[in-house]
């Protein structure tokens, strides 16, 4: 005789219990897609499977990387722009990131080394480079040149900020000028590429370091993967524009796991003491 099973009616109490369970206990790694208990990513937010570092806010990064930090140039006037929806977007970005712009700059202590530090924040409008971010970075290099400090920039960005138009594009040239003068003074500049570093940021200061480091699996490139796929009418491999492939192509000195980043920077800074 064929047995038909009918599902037991759900008990209201069971439903209530399920709904009361906390959510977000598990995380899926955006790189390897493995799921792991959130706690296993640890305070550094690194995938226990593949070593990919989840995107950090600038404040989280500064807390992880420095022993001391004093912010510079917090109050800079925004470019008056009437681009529709831009003011609202900035406000939303500020609450999403806890930052007031896509980069936070200041003087920091890494190990025993005083540096001028710029940390970008992908949670703020995808880390896009606008006039305020450009001005902060420019002043970072200028102050570092004056004070004879090395510069460390932790880069992450989708590129130039569309809403500010051509003025954003000009920031690439402006910051590059400041990098060039810092370099001409014989001072050290280290870049840490984190996921993602693209477009106008990759095509300017993020690729101008004396030493270029990257976090594992970070996407680094100029044009977006989808734009390229649409242009060449072909699918690109999974490792396309990933730090490992970019390093193999010759553009990254070392790929450094997040947990080792502070020590790596300290070691490099020590080798350039006074530079």
């Amino acid at each position: 005789m064929l047995k038909t099973s009918t599902p037991a009616p759900l008990d209201q109490a069971v439903i209530a219990k399920a709904q009361a369970l906390p959510t977000g206990l598990w995380l899926t790694c955006p790189n390897c897609h493995a799921s792991a208990y959130r706690r296993r990513f640890g305070a550094a937010k690194v995938c226990p499977q593949c070593g990919y570092g989840l995107r950090l806010t600038a404040h989280e990064r500064i807390a992880q990387l420095t022993q001391q930090f004093e912010q510079w140039d917090q109050q800079l006037p925004q470019l008056p722009t009437d681009f529709p929806g831009y003011a609202d977007k900035r406000q939303a970005a500020a609450s999403a990131s806890g930052s007031d712009e896509s980069v936070i700059c200041g003087q920091a202590l890494i190990g025993a080394h005083t540096v001028a530090l710029g940390v970008m924040d992908s949670h703020y409008m995808m880390g896009s480079l606008g006039t305020v971010a450009g001005e902060r970075l420019c002043r970072l290099f200028e102050r570092a040149t004056q004070a004879r400090l090395p510069v460390v920039v932790v880069a992450t960005s989708g590129g130039a900020r569309m809403q500010e138009g051509i003025q954003s594009l000009m920031q690439m040239a402006k910051v590059s000028q400041a990098v060039a003068h810092h370099a001409a003074a014989g001072l050290l500049y280290i870049v840490v590429l984190s996921d993602p570093t693209m477009g106008g940021v990759a095509a300017s200061f993020a690729m101008q370091g004396d030493i270029i480091l990257a976090e594992p699996h970070s996407r680094v490139g100029f044009a977006g993967k989808r734009v390229i796929e649409a242009t060449i009418h072909a699918q690109l491999p999974a490792d396309f524009q990933r730090a490992e492939a970019v390093q193999k192509a010759g553009f990254i000195d070392a790929i450094v796991p997040r947990s080792a980043l502070g020590a790596k920077l300290a070691a490099l800074l020590a080798l350039h003491e006074g530079c």
Binding site: M172, A180, G199, A202, A206, F222
Partner: peptide, 26 residues
């Protein structure tokens, strides 16, 4: 604009532009 191609990316499109911006500054 710069060509959004596979070879272009693999050969450092971003770095090539960044180098020019840096060089022209001085």
């Amino acid at each position: 604009g710069a060509y959004p191609g596979k070879e272009a990316e693999a050969n450092g499109q971003a770095a090539a532009i960044a180098d020019l911006l840096l060089a022209v500054s001085t």
